[in-house]
Design a protein around this nucleic acid. Structure first.
Lengths: 198, 198, 198, 198
DNA sequence: CATGAATGAGGCTTCATTCAT
DNA sequence: GATGAATGAAGCCTCATTCAT
């Protein structure tokens, strides 16, 4: 079956959104594999068949959710760092924002991680999109001497790796925000890694 | 079900090992959920029922494989860094060793990552064990002024995050070792993050 | 459910006909069971619900199509044999006409065959109606000594059987008209089977 | 999934056969599409999953049954016509044998007919195999002047068509053997169609 | 120690049909 | 007359696990 048509009515659009929300919760709570369409539709308050009016398969929903998380995260980061005066401030605010975001959207974050085992391409795409933006920001900062002459791409991935484990430890495992000292300690490493030497 | 007793005979031990190897490949290739006991036993050349002579369940195998990877990885890192003269050399050699190891044991590495969605505790335990050793090493290095006065634990997790993404990008996604420049670039960030300032 | 009333308006009649045509194609191409109402309505360019404005069920459509094929076929045969001077000529022209018709209306023909597994009565009725006319024609021919004194009914079914397999082999399986020699060869058997002995 | 291994034990072989028998009944009674795996396994007295130990899919069973009917029918025909002294006797005995066989194996016969709508190739193959043997027999008879110089292949298909409708009318629709007069009447047409003219 | 047949719950998905607009 | 969203039953199939030998 080819792509499903978008819902034609507002009612349809609302149902679709309810399903998406329900899926986010179900996947987040039970994991993709343990989650069932029945669970999703039940939570959304519709019949099982309704699911397939809006999504061709269970996998398509996870794909859509990963995309969604990508957008939301970029948005959150952009917003949080909008007022930063230099790149290191961007990094700092970005780490904080990510820590908040990953806790708030714990389910989505878990889904993104699990998507690796459902559709590697979507997972990879998620990070590559992120890395690209990240590297671009670093490149600009290097040009303005706000950051050492690091390789922007390698640095971007390194920083994402650091952030990833912050999210994992605190948002996922401990279900809380990292304590300020921890964030300070992590950022201290980041800062020394990036800041220009006199 | 209590844990199964270890096989008494050498033949049994061999069968058990064959099953473990087969599971490593099957899980690595198809992923934990898509892999089937039938696939594992077929690959191991034994009957399906034989599996349950050695493992109480499918999940137990992944647990055992994750432990296994933990041991092997620590062994590989210890070996690779044995001759290092200072901590930064340890880091450098460690990154290189990890890059090689994650490529060589791609399947195992994938399994570790997926174990998060099968048994979070095992996954978390894997990293916590690693982090503990890592942090201890850093602590010693700090005492000897080979590394800045960072928070050893936070730094350990940050460095593991960096390494994780190196493994992901190269061993998993590209199925090759990282090019030397990439490793240099990453290590450059690490070094500046850790090395003492004059 | 009693039969649905015929549409009152010309627009309704047109929609009904579009649905019938679409069903003919869908059933012919995918088979009755694999064909879906959604496929039919899509092809007809109407909404799914519209189908049930004109037909009480999927089965009713196949029934109507079988009837339709019966009428059309009888018409085609009558037309094709109108100018025949004796019964054997009728047979010959009839076989030719059937070969053409079954190719041209391949989909309908397939539908008739499949109707056996949807509603045996409709299928049986189709052939019994045909057989009746066929036998009547033979009976008249026998009275006029244009055909041997065969049992008209048995002969009619035998001849339909022969024709059926001509349609199957050529129209359905090979999607072409039978080569003239083949038709000659078949008719040769028919002729000897029917023609009066001196 | 590739082909399933044949059962290794006698018990397995027996189960497989029970499933085949059950499927024959279920398909014959309800038709292929209406028949369910659940119905088959219930009738066979095994769990649903057991079905898939022996057959990759529902369709594979029908394929196997069609093959089976082919073999059995050829066997029955060969046996019934073994003592015939000339080809017309073969034809006569063959028609009688087919009439008996199609009644006795009504379910199988129905299944063969329906197989056309499940896997056209299997249905076609069934008849082509039959036709080949039939034509060969006719060819030999022609060489020995027991039959007119008809085109063996065309004649074979024509005769199969006649027999098919005999089976349909009596075995399937009326669930009885054709009355002797009917068989006589049909054979009379066949005989005139085939026998050499003086 | 090993086999391989058997189980049965459970999941995804399809689709004819109904209903509210 | 027409729409298209919604229903929900039903079916195929998979697979971890158990059992009899």
């Amino acid at each position: 079956m080819p792509t499903l048509p978008r819902p034609a009515t507002a009612r349809g659009e609302a149902t679709r959104q309810r399903l998406l929300d329900a899926a986010e919760t179900e996947f987040g709570v039970h994991g993709f594999h343990a989650a069932s369409i029945a669970g999703i539709t039940q939570r959304a308050g519709v019949a099982q068949g309704t699911f397939y009016l809006y999504f061709p398969s269970k996998e398509d929903v996870i794909r859509e959710l990963v995309h969604h998380m990508g957008h939301e995260l970029r948005l959150a980061l952009a917003t949080a760092t909008a007022d930063a005066t230099d790149r290191l401030a961007v990094e700092r605010l970005g780490f904080e924002a990510f820590a908040r975001f990953s806790l708030l959207h714990r389910n989505l974050y878990r889904i993104v991680m699990e998507s690796q085992f459902v559709d590697e391409a979507i997972y990879r795409g998620y990070y590559e999109a992120l890395a690209q933006g990240y590297a671009a920001g670093l490149r600009r900062a290097i040009e303005q001497d706000e950051v050492r002459a690091v390789d922007p791409e390698s640095a971007a991935w390194a920083l994402m790796g650091i952030a990833h484990f912050v999210g994992l430890r605190y948002a996922i495992w401990q279900e809380r925000e990292p304590p300020p000292e921890a964030l300070d300690a992590v950022f201290d490493v980041v800062r020394h890694g990036l800041e220009p030497r006199p």
